[in-house]
């Protein structure tokens, strides 16, 4: 293999994302305390050896809740991006490959989706179909479809007129195979970048929704929810609100840097 030059951003991004991923994995097997375990006598503890990040207004261990919250964040990110990616690629490739009236209709629908402000749409969706993490993920997923569809489509439009696609057709390759095997790999790098960035915004959106009380329902921990609960005690226990804030910032920063780094290196021709 040839040696590739990775950018500085890429390294920082990787370190942050790996750190967060580590937390997620560990949280499946071990948290210092049970997340829902209350202890009124120990509320608003400052960070100490027993509770590394202190406790909240019910005396629950913040570190444990952050760890469990990371699961929620990753779950929302992965699933909503998954939904967006799947339908985005499907719609984008059909629109880009067939063109004409099909393209026109599909892309106008996408425009309509984009026209809604993202968080507002999610709010509406959750308000109509009910609160909860599943509906949040679906809403965020739908909102990210147009972005992926557009990237896929523009990639398809670039690759489609090239001669190797004609060559594949003349060999007798089916349309579906041309789309998925011959064209898609050429479009994948901008998609990966978009995934990484989209993941960051999904985490942020989930935090926002939960902050408003519409996302993850109590007593399940979520970074956004912790932030909203903690704001009443901002002066009394600053660590309570600072810690989830830091984690939200970290994950957004990490994935954005990662996406940035990937876009710089994902090109075999360089």
């Amino acid at each position: 293999m040839k040696k590739r030059k990775y950018s500085f951003n890429f390294y920082i991004g990787i370190v942050i994302v790996a750190f967060l991923l580590g937390i997620v994995i560990v949280s499946f097997f071990y948290t210092p305390y049970t997340v829902t375990q209350m202890n009124i006598g120990k509320k608003f503890l400052k960070p100490c050896w027993e509770h590394l990040l202190g406790t909240d207004h019910f005396g629950r261990d913040i570190l444990s809740r952050i760890m469990m919250g990371s699961q929620t964040a990753f779950q929302v990110g992965l699933i909503s991006i998954g939904i967006g990616l799947f339908f985005g690629i499907l719609i984008g490739s059909i629109a880009g490959y067939y063109g004409g009236i099909v393209d026109e209709i599909l892309m106008r629908i996408m425009d309509a989706v984009i026209a809604f402000p993202g968080l507002l749409f999610a709010l509406m969706f959750v308000a109509v179909l009910g609160q909860g993490i599943v509906n949040t993920m679906i809403a965020l997923g739908i909102m990210s479809i147009p972005q992926f569809a557009r990237i896929t489509r523009s990639g398809f439009l670039q690759v489609k007129p090239l001669k190797y696609i004609d060559m594949a057709k003349s060999i007798g390759v089916s349309n579906f195979r041309i789309m998925m095997v011959h064209i898609l790999p050429n479009v994948i790098s901008p998609l990966i970048v978009a995934c990484s960035m989209g993941f960051a915004s999904a985490v942020l959106a989930e935090a926002g929704l939960s902050y408003l009380g519409l996302g993850v329902q109590p007593p399940n921990p979520s970074w956004g929810r912790m932030l909203s609960e903690s704001q009443m005690y901002l002066l009394k226990a600053p660590t309570y609100s600072i810690v989830p804030g830091i984690f939200i910032t970290l994950s957004v920063l990490g994935f954005n840097l990662l996406g940035d780094g990937i876009s710089a290196i994902r090109d075999p021709r360089k």
Partner: peptide
């Protein structure tokens, strides 16, 4: 299978993301 084409531009007639082996196997695979 019976009618095949060769194109003008050797720079765009091969998929840049695939290895030569893959490209050549593709007709048979299909």
């Amino acid at each position: 299978r019976n009618i095949q084409m060769i194109f003008q531009d050797p720079y765009s007639c091969l998929n840049p993301r695939k290895k030569i082996g893959w490209i050549l196997e593709e007709p048979l695979r299909v």
